[in-house]
Simulated scan of single mutants.
Amino acid sequence: MSDSAKTAARAAKNSTAVRTLARVGFAASGIVHILIGIIAVSVATGGSGGDNADQSGALARLSEVPGGVFLLWAAAISLAALGVWHVLDAFLDRTASGRDRVSHIVKNVGKGVVYLTLAGTCTVFATGGSASSSGSTKSLTAQLLAAPGGVLAVAGIGLVMLGIAGYLVFKGATRRFERDLRMPSGAAAKGVRVLGTVGYIARGLALAAVGVLFLVGAITHDPDRSTGLDGALRSFADLPFGKIILILIGAGWMAYGVYAFVRARLARL
């Protein structure tokens, strides 16, 4: 990247408009997480059988409320801005070096891709379309399994998911998420810590289940076993005391959604 391009990219990253949209993006992500949590709890209590307990199910619900299309467009724009901000931050922030810098790049590029993908899904629903995260996951798994070395690729995805899940649980349990925030003081700080800890651990447990399903799909050579977040959350209901576990995970996702609203206000950008 040329010096002029770097300067332009740095200016874009630090612009007030992009920072504002990035903060709104955190709030939009919070709405999605809260809706996924609500669907998960509904599944555990016998409702929402037709709703996917994932991003597509949450956005489908959002599209049905009054003003939902406007909210979806606002979410798409802000999430896209948040994704771009993470990608730019990955390469323009040079406060770290060596392995720390590599880790910084990988984490922020990964986050950027996730937010940009979610922005694209919001756009699909905003324009009147529909999407199924579960169906897309099954399709991807089937294509990989049909390719040479596909079993190893699917198993690799599962292991990566488990690694990310472990990091999320670790980040919640050790409260490393506080590094992302300008922490308040007093009772407010305690509230933020509870929301962040519970939210990150719940997200980690759900993502671990997604990783396990990818591994099962690889071992059985059955793409229908890899059902993404929706199937992962529903799989908890089949475990002993699974409905209670699913309710707790759903509540944790809602807690993370509230934390995301807090992050929209307190995030270090």
Score class of each variant (00 low, 15 high):
Met1Tyr: 10
Ser2Asn: 15
Ala5Gly: 03
Lys6Thr: 15
Ala9Trp: 07
Ala9Ser: 15
Ala12Glu: 15
Ala17Leu: 15
Ala17Met: 15
Ala22Thr: 14
Arg23Tyr: 02
Gly25Ile: 05
Gly25Ser: 05
Ala27Cys: 12
Ala27Thr: 10
Ala28Ser: 13
Ser29Ile: 02
Ile31Ala: 14
His33Gln: 09
Val41His: 07
Ser42Glu: 13
Val43Ala: 11
Ala44Gly: 06
Gly46Gln: 11
Ser48Met: 13
Ala53Leu: 08
Asp54Pro: 05
Ser56Ile: 04
Ser63Leu: 11
Val65Gly: 03
Val69Asp: 07
Val69Ile: 06
Phe70Ile: 10
Phe70Cys: 01
Ala74Lys: 01
Ala74Leu: 14
Ala75Pro: 04
Ala76Trp: 02
Leu79Gln: 13
Ala81Asn: 14
Trp85Leu: 12
His86Ala: 14
His86Glu: 08
Val87Glu: 12
Val87Phe: 12
Leu88Tyr: 09
Ala90Leu: 12
Phe91Ser: 02
Asp93Lys: 07
Arg94Gly: 07
Gly98Thr: 04
Arg99Tyr: 04
Arg99Val: 08
Arg101His: 13
Arg101Ala: 09
Ser103Asn: 14
His104Leu: 06
His104Phe: 09
Ile105Leu: 06
Val109Ser: 06
Lys111Pro: 00
Val113Glu: 12
Val114Lys: 03
Val114Cys: 05
Val114Glu: 03
Val114Gly: 06
Leu116Ile: 14
Thr117Pro: 01
Ala119Asn: 10
Thr121Tyr: 14
Val124Asn: 07
Phe125Pro: 00
Ala131Gln: 15
Ser132Trp: 07
Gly135Leu: 08
Thr137Glu: 11
Thr141Val: 15
Leu144Asp: 02
Ala146Pro: 05
Ala153Trp: 04
Ile157His: 11
Gly158Glu: 01
Val160Met: 10
Leu162Arg: 03
Gly163Met: 08
Ile164Arg: 05
Ala165Gln: 10
Leu168Trp: 07
Lys171Met: 09
Gly172Met: 01
Ala173Asn: 06
Ala173Gly: 01
Thr174Lys: 08
Ala187Phe: 11
Ala188Cys: 01
Ala189Phe: 06
Lys190Thr: 08
Lys190Tyr: 08
Val192Pro: 03
Arg193Ile: 15
Val194Lys: 13
Val194Tyr: 08
Leu195Phe: 07
Gly196Trp: 04
Thr197Tyr: 11
Val198Ile: 13
Gly199Arg: 13
Leu205Ala: 12
Leu207Val: 14
Gly211Asp: 04
Gly217His: 02
Ile219Ala: 11
His221Cys: 08
His221Pro: 00
Pro223Glu: 10
Arg225Asp: 12
Thr227Gln: 09
Asp230Leu: 07
Gly231Tyr: 14
Ala232His: 08
Arg234Asn: 12
Ala237Leu: 08
Asp238Arg: 13
Asp238His: 09
Ile244Thr: 14
Ile245Glu: 15
Ile247Val: 15
Leu248Trp: 04
Ile249Asn: 11
Trp253Glu: 07
Met254Phe: 14
Met254His: 04
Met254Glu: 03
Gly257Tyr: 02
Tyr259Trp: 15
Val262Leu: 09
Arg263Leu: 09
